[in-house]
C-alpha cells in the first residue's frame, strides 16, 4: 500500500517538475528567437514570473521527484534493474538541463543580453528524454 502512495506522489512531483521545465524552456526559447522581446517593456516581468514559478514549484518538485523516486525504488526493490539505471542517466541529464535553464533565467533577469541560440534546443531534449523515460518505466525492456 505504501508503495502505491509513494509512486503516486512521485508521478505528481514529476508532472509538476516537467511542466515547469517546459515553462522555463519556452520562455528561454522565446527570448532566444525573438528580436523584439529583449527590448519589450514587460520583459523583466515575464522573466520574473517564470523564475518565481521555477523557485517555488519546479525546483521543489524536482527534489520531491528524486526523493519519492528513491523511496519507490527502495520499497519496490528496483535498485540494480537495468531499466532503472538507464532511466537514472536520463533523469540526471534532465536535472542538469533544468539547472542550466534556471541559471539562464537568472542571467537574463540581471542582464539585457539574449540567451545563446543553443538554449532554444532545450524543448526537444526534454520531450525526447521524457518519452525515453516513460518507455523504460512502462515497458521495462531491459
Amino acid at each position: 500500500m505504501i508503495y502505491l502512495w509513494l509512486k503516486a506522489f512521485h508521478i505528481a512531483s514529476v508532472t509538476v517538475w516537467i511542466g515547469g521545465m517546459f515553462v522555463a524552456a519556452i520562455a528561454v526559447a522565446a527570448l532566444s528567437a525573438s528580436k523584439s522581446l529583449p527590448d519589450a517593456p514587460n520583459r523583466a516581468d515575464i522573466i520574473e514570473a517564470v523564475r518565481r514559478w521555477d523557485r517555488w514549484a519546479t525546483s521543489p518538485a524536482m527534489l520531491l521527484a528524486w526523493l519519492f523516486g528513491l523511496a519507490v525504488a527502495t520499497e519496490g526493490g528496483w535498485f540494480g534493474a537495468r531499466w532503472l539505471m538507464m532511466k537514472l542517466v536520463f533523469v540526471v541529464a534532465l536535472s542538469g538541463l533544468h539547472g542550466m535553464l534556471s541559471g539562464t533565467l537568472r542571467k537574463l533577469a540581471r542582464t539585457a543580453e539574449q540567451p545563446s541560440p543553443a538554449s532554444g534546443h532545450a524543448l526537444p531534449v526534454i520531450v525526447g528524454a521524457v518519452v525515453v523515460i516513460v518507455l523504460l518505466v512502462v515497458l521495462k525492456p531491459i
Binding site: 542538469g96 539547472g99 542550466m100 535553464l101 541559471g103 537568472r106 542571467k107 540581471r110 542582464t111
Partner: peptide, 14 residues
Amino acid sequence: LTYLWMLIRMVSAG
C-alpha cells in the same frame, strides 16, 4: 546530486 544541480544553476547564471 543536489550540490551538482545547484552548481550547474549557479555557473549557468554567469
